[in-house]
Amino acid sequence: MDSATELEQIEKLAKEAESLKIRLEDERQKLNDVTLASVADRLEPINCMNVKPRRILKGHQAKVLCSDWSPDKRHIVSSSQDGKMIIWDAFTTNKEHAVTMPTTWVMACAYAPSGALVACGGLDNKVTVYPLSLEDDVSARKKTVGTHTSYMSCCAFPNSDQQILTGSGDSTCALWDVESGQLLQNFHGHSGDVMSIDLAPSETGNTFVSGSCDKMVLIWDMRSGQCVQSFEGHRSDVNSVRFHPSGDAVATGSDDATCRLFDLRADKEVAVYAKESIIFGANAVDLSISGRLLFAGHNDYTVNAWDTLKCQRVALLYGHENRVSCLRVSPDGTALSTGSWDATLRVWA
């Protein structure tokens, strides 16, 4: 009997959710007075995009799956399919550390704000931190912080070395205490694999965004663990999410080959970056310091650069010989790093 009433309740709630969604969409449309492109019409176009490959980092023996910039603006951590994690001095292209993880497909890695710690994980379902020191073997001091029930797809340090936020194929996100490995907060709400997370840029901000294979983009309150806002629009898996530097919008990249911009305060999608000639999914997106440029790494080996305000593509970057799996603008915006299944990383500027 219990299960029957529960089913009824579920049905009722599902119906309510549907009707609420419709009302919500109505509300949103009321304030949908202009399109981005029309407002940006008068803006000076970006005419000379002169981004070129400046460094090639070779050393991985297999697909590069994830990378992150060090806060010092020149080091990069990258992880690959064969379980290797490498710390690069991207400026000199030297490898400073190489760590072999006891797993393959290390799909996530991240630098801590201090630059003295990196975290990574993947098919092992775990997030492991490695303190970086030049003296002893990095892997000697590794520490497993948290464990999901499925692969770990993304991780990030929220303005502190003491905590780490992870997203997982088990469709949850989690906030961990690095020292004790304690689960500080759990984030339930996605119904598909969480593919990407990003923290709000404000130091005082306590929110982050997540993108998932359920095509949803959710904004979370880290303190309460509640989802506070949701965005629909993508027609396929959301592979990548990044906050606009203003913190008022979120850029996303999806398997449906589009990138989109969702504004938090307007509570809706404000731009779609799509082109008929872009057929393949976007695996990674990031924005320049001013938010004007959006870079998207695609499965067809290319990186598309978009003018976010005019909704025009301003450059198409060739170079990689396989899918572009990760992409990050450096902390000071001077460069763009891309990682690819062709086992290389490239730095563009």
């Binding site: 304030l31 399109t35 981005l36 407002v39 606009h244 008022d248 919008a249 504004d263 305060r265 809706k268």
Partner: peptide
């Protein structure tokens, strides 16, 4: 919510 035009102006 704010109007889309306002949001865009902010960006």
């Amino acid at each position: 919510r704010i109007k889309v035009s306002t949001a865009i102006e902010n960006l």
